[in-house]
Simulated scan of single mutants.
Amino acid sequence: MANKLDGSTKNQEMESVLLDLIKSLQDGQKGFAEIGEHLKDATLKRYFLAESLKRASFRAELEGQLHIAGMADVKESGSVAGALHRSWGELKAKLGGGDHSLLETAEKGEDEAKDAYKKALEHELPLPIRSLLSEQQAHVLTSHDYVRNQRDALAAAK
């Protein structure tokens, strides 16, 4: 029985996992909004702004789960890596990297989001949380593929 986690440890693990994902979602929300502002293609711009709102929605769902479990209030932050990533995207936009370059930056951000969900789902989590994370992960994977395909289409058009 020594390898079983007690309730308190499981709650701490769940809180840690969800807080890490929330940081990733904050990064994605900000990144999609900032890159979306710089994209020239109107369809991509709308997609990126909608995806920013979707990440905010995912974040709210996870924060709601933390509140239901009686856990921490979440502070607006994001990660240091996310802040650096967004700065790189802004720099590319200012230097005239164009939509292709911005999509490359966005795909790297989506790679980080994919990894965050994969790591989160490696933990022992309650079924409702696991189910929610799986649904969100499926959307993130679809979004990643869309961004990658748009980037590749722009490269092929050159």
Rank of each mutant, 00 (worst) to 15 (best):
A116D: 05
R55G: 00
G98L: 10
E104G: 11
H38C: 07
V80E: 15
G36Y: 03
G97S: 06
R86V: 11
R148C: 02
G70D: 10
H139R: 08
A155F: 08
E61H: 11
Q26K: 00
V17A: 07
I68V: 15
Q137D: 01
L121W: 03
L62K: 00
S143F: 07
A2W: 08
S8F: 11
D152G: 00
L21N: 03
L84S: 08
S134V: 09
V17D: 00
H100K: 14
G97R: 02
L103G: 01
V74S: 07
D115A: 14
S57N: 13
S79G: 14
S134F: 08
A56H: 09
E112S: 14
A83T: 09
L154F: 09
E124N: 10
E13H: 07
A156F: 00
E104I: 08
H144R: 12
Y146Q: 12
G7S: 15
I35K: 01
G96C: 13
K118R: 14
Q136P: 06
Q12M: 13
S24V: 01
A81W: 07
E122A: 12
G70N: 08
K108L: 13
L127I: 11
D73N: 13
V140T: 08
F32Y: 14
Q26R: 00
F48K: 03
Q150V: 02
G109I: 05
D27R: 03
Y117T: 04
D152W: 00
K45R: 12
E135T: 09
L39E: 01
T43F: 01
L91M: 14
P126N: 07
K75E: 15
A42D: 14
H144M: 02
T43E: 12
Y117R: 06
G31V: 04
R55Q: 12
N11R: 10
L125I: 03
I35D: 00
A2R: 08
A33C: 04
A42Y: 03
L91A: 13
N3Q: 12
I35L: 11
A156P: 01
N11S: 14
G31C: 11
E122L: 08
K54R: 12
H38D: 08
K94L: 12
A69R: 08
G89Q: 05
R59F: 04
L154G: 06
K30Y: 07
H67G: 09
E104P: 02
M14C: 11
K10G: 06
H123E: 13
G109W: 00
A69W: 04
L91D: 04
L127Q: 09
S77E: 15
S24M: 10
S87A: 15
K10E: 10
A72H: 03
